[in-house]
Design a protein around this nucleic acid. Structure first.
Length: 877
DNA sequence: GTTCAACCGTT
DNA sequence: GACGTACGGTTGAACC
């Protein structure tokens, strides 16, 4: 059935983010749920084949030979199905030396004897021999949804024999899939005729000499096939099964295990179907422990009374918001303590109440917990409230516990950790409840969320402690969150006139490139942005050499186009590449243009719980991928300028921070020495790898070791290195060998990191940030390799992320302590951009150098490069 | 209107 | 046969 599901569902549509295919698992579980819903069995068991030889293959070595190899995408899915069965408390049975169908036949026979009615689900027609008055077979017609029950009459209607004679028929006809040839020339019709004439195979064999014609001859010639087939297709009904019926009683699934597994498999509709089926509705589960009814706080006195009674407790806080015309506003606040909840509307609030509320929100002594502190802080700030005393952000806690999770939204983590459904919160977030929010019951969902946040906070705290993440939460991420909120609110000033000019310039380039491209293909006009149309032009019209294969044909990516240009020199390629570059730049410019707010500045949003390594990410717009490598691209950096009332922009970046972390973590004497002496790292490494004086290291040698050094932290292979440097794999291998001969501690470290991660199940940064990598133990080689590279990289990239985050806390404190007006605006992984107030440049530079340099005590110095200028581009050069 | 595939920008 | 981390965002095309 797993195989049926595998072929019925397209593998490419069922895969997790990590690349594990799940179509067979999905289909199998889906079918099983349908069966359970339709047939309402009291007992369920699942049987599996093993890879080991069976009595059939031992007797007939050709049994099932000649089958196509199991497709790559099927790998591992059987084990996953077994895990799902375990989570559902359904026994899965397999027996060395026997096939799944033998187990089923035994179960059917024993079940009947015990008085059960039996349903066998199998994709193998041999199962028809099990059919009796009490046993039916569910046999899939096609796909996974059409699985009608077959009884004796159904078999007879289809094959013209009774089920107990089906094996005789199959023996005569043969079974290609099992490599069991039957009698040539005899199909189901002839076989059925003989069986009905002679009463079965024994009768046929008795009368074998009386059967006339070519088919009779054929039968006599191949009678050995028939007897062998009959012996092999007979299913055993007397195995000693390791599991009794009592273990097969259909039980409720192990909720925890199913949730965890379905999270990993990314099954969401199936999860709902499963829990619906078992009457295990998450909403019901939550209702077992009702949320205290909320009090509506009307005035200052009401608020103060409630806070007086409950405010000494940790308070769950949730802001009720309404979004209209793209702007989101807080319209009310919900509080939850251990045994009470309250809601206060902000819509018609008097001055006195506003003041009382402001006091509660800003008070350090009223400890609070929220989900997404940064967002809440900004929303409240907009409304004139300062939020403080927040000890936990459940979004960040959940992230530190499971940084790989795709979503850390409140409904998702509430579902996972507390089994509480917050669909209405989700719907509200998606704007689907916008109308309802106008209605009277704005409070209930907000209160529910506040209650859940508090419960989650208490639930996650011990988990985080156990994983050593409490310090990161309290002393790094929470204070950082506040800094990020301020950076986002500050935004960065934009020279919009310049931005418009750039747009026009790039448009001109695009138009010119488009004309040139069309001219190069005889005036044919295609959409140069359509890879599909480009494929036609490149590989059909122009008949250029084929590039690397991708799903939809052949790739047209930049690297391949450059390759093709070298090979063919075709002018279309030149124009196309120019078009690509210019459209990409114009699209970046257009994105920025749309993002300029009414204050003339761009306010990005930092995602603090997205990157699994601990880095930040930037969105709406992404200011961490503004072009810098090309001349044209750098022009875009010129539009990021110092704002009114400030003197200059300042950028400060760590030089080679990841290599320095590598030197520190590996303890490699050579690397450490290079950094202590302040030498050009790549020159130093090059001189050792190539055995020449530093001054004799050529640019080519330098760029080779540079690529090598950087690649190391990403798990680069000799193949990858050869490709990048356009050298032979042999040469790349020699380069790596020479590198490690001189810097062996690096290799030892990289190996040790993976070994340790395999042992622990996670990697750790210098500051204790963990990343769990269960797929290090996967038996899927590709997944395992990916996990191994992630294990190499996570401590390095993650430590760098920790360090700059610590630096940001230091810089913020330094600026505040010195009473400066200058402020941080942007973070780009190893770089900070600040806006410096008039007269503060020297002090700010000194603070930034000191704090960034002191963010970590490594065995090598942290080198910081600082620059100032009126634009981001000027500042950096 | 939504989702997927391809592509490409940064570190 | 595959082969470098971590991201966000746009476009075209296919689909509902």
């Amino acid at each position: 059935m797993a195989f049926r599901a595998f072929y019925a569902l397209p593998a490419e549509n069922f895969a997790t983010d990590t690349g594990q295919h799940t179509n067979a698992v999905h289909g199998f579980v889906s079918m099983l749920l349908t069966m359970i819903r339709q047939q309402k069995p009291t007992h369920v068991a699942v049987a599996f084949d093993l890879d080991t030889p069976t009595f059939r293959s031992l007797e007939y070595t050709e049994y099932k030979a000649g089958r196509n190899k199991t497709p790559e995408e099927f790998h591992g899915q059987i084990d996953l199905i077994r895990k799902v069965m375990e989570a559902m408390n359904i026994p899965s049975i397999s027996m060395d030396g026997f096939e799944a169908d033998d187990i089923l036949a035994t179960l059917a026979a024993k079940g009947e004897a015990a008085g059960f009615e039996v349903l066998v689900v199998s994709g193998d027609r041999d199962a028809f021999q099990m059919i009796t008055e009490k046993t039916l077979v569910l046999y899939p017609k096609k796909g996974i949804s059409d699985i009608p029950p077959m009884d004796g009459d159904a078999v007879e209607a289809k094959y013209f024999v009774r089920p107990e004679q089906y094996s005789d028929l199959a023996a005569l006809v043969g079974e290609t899939a099992d490599n069991l040839p039957g009698v040539p020339g005899v199909g189901p019709k002839t076989a059925a005729k003989w069986i009905n004439l002679y009463g079965g195979l024994p009768g046929i064999l008795e009368n074998i000499d009386n059967i006339k014609g070519k088919v009779g001859e054929s039968l006599r010639e191949h009678v050995d096939n028939v007897t062998r087939n009959r012996r092999l297709n007979h299913l055993l009904t007397d195995l000693e099964l390791p599991v009794g019926f009592e273990a097969m009683v259909l039980d409720r699934p192990d909720r925890e295990a199913v949730e965890e597994l379905f999270d990993a498999l990314q099954f969401n509709t199936l999860r709902k179907r499963l829990f619906d089926l078992f009457g295990d509705d998450p909403v019901e589960a939550a209702e077992e422990e009702p949320i205290p009814a909320h009090e509506l706080l009307q005035d200052a006195a009401g608020l103060e009374t409630w806070i007086g009674a409950h405010g000494a407790q940790l308070l769950g806080l949730h802001a009720a918001t309404v979004t209209s015309a793209g702007a989101t506003d807080v319209v009310g606040l919900a509080f939850a303590s251990n045994d009470a909840t309250a809601f206060i509307s902000l819509e018609e609030i008097d001055e006195e109440t506003e003041k009382a509320l402001a006091q509660v929100l800003s008070s350090e002594s009223h400890t609070k917990t929220v989900h997404d502190f940064k967002r809440t802080y900004k929303l409240l700030k907009n409304r004139g409230f300062e939020l403080a005393g927040v000890h936990d952000d459940t979004m960040i806690s959940a992230y530190l516990i499971q940084p790989d999770r795709r979503s850390h939204e409140l409904p998702d983590i509430a579902q996972q950790h507390l089994r509480i459904s917050l669909d209405e919160t989700k719907a509200a977030a998606n704007g689907q409840l916008a109308l309802d929010l106008e209605g009277p019951d704005l409070a209930t969902p907000a209160v529910r969320a506040a209650h859940v946040v508090r419960a989650l906070s208490l639930h996650l705290a011990p988990m985080l402690l156990e994983r050593g993440g409490t310090d990161l939460l309290k002393n790094l991420e929470m204070p950082l969150s506040l800094i990020l909120a301020h950076m986002e609110m500050s935004g960065i000033a934009i020279d919009t006139a310049r931005l418009d000019e750039l747009y026009d310039d790039f448009t001109t380039t695009i138009n010119r490139a488009t004309e040139e491209a069309f001219a190069a293909i005889d005036g044919q006009e295609v959409n140069l942005s359509s890879p599909k149309q480009l494929q036609v032009v490149l590989f059909e019209t122009l008949d250029l050499p084929k590039t690397k294969k991708i799903k939809t044909g052949f790739t047209t990516d930049a690297e391949s186009l450059a390759d093709l240009l070298v090979k063919t020199g075709h002018p279309f390629l030149v124009a196309l590449m120019a078009y690509r570059d210019a459209t990409k730049l114009r699209q970046t410019v257009e994105g920025l243009r749309k993002a300029v707010a009414s204050d003339g500045r761009i306010h990005t949003t930092y995602a603090q719980t997205v990157a699994a390594t601990g880095r930040l990410s930037s969105l709406n717009p992404n200011l961490q991928n503004i072009p810098v490598r090309s001349e044209e691209g750098r022009r875009i950096r010129e539009v990021f300028v110092v704002g009114d009332g400030f003197q200059t922009l300042l950028t400060a970046d760590y030089s080679q921070i990841e290599m320095r972390i590598m030197a520190h973590l590996s303890g490699d004497e050579g690397l450490i020495q290079a950094y202590e002496e302040g030498e050009d790292l790549h020159r130093f490494v090059g001189s050792h790898v190539f055995g020449v004086e530093p001054a004799e290291v050529t640019n080519e040698m330098r760029s080779k070791v540079k690529a090598m050094s950087y690649g190391l932290a990403y798990g680069l292979s000799s193949f990858g290195l050869s490709k990048q440097l356009k050298i032979s794999v042999d040469e790349a291998r020699t380069l790596m060998k020479d590198y490690f001969a001189r810097f062996g501690a690096v290799r030892d470290y990289l190996r040790a990191v993976v070994d340790q991660a395999r042992k622990d199940g996670y990697t750790e940064t210098i500051f204790g940030r963990r990343r769990y990598l269960p797929e290090l133990a996967s038996d899927n080689r590709q997944l395992r390799d990916i996990a191994e590279r992630a294990a190499l990289n996570a401590p390095i990239q993650g430590s760098a992320a920790d360090i700059i985050k610590r630096a940001m806390l230091g810089v913020e404190k330094g600026l505040a302590d010195a009473g400066l007006k200058s402020r941080m605006l942007l973070q780009v992984h190893d770089e900070l951009v600040l806006e410096v107030a008039t007269g503060e440049l020297e002090t700010v530079e000194q603070i930034v150098r000191e704090k960034m340099g002191a963010a970590a005590e490594l065995s090598v110095p942290l080198d910081v490069h600082v620059g100032a200028g009126t634009s981001w581009q000027d500042a950096a050069h």
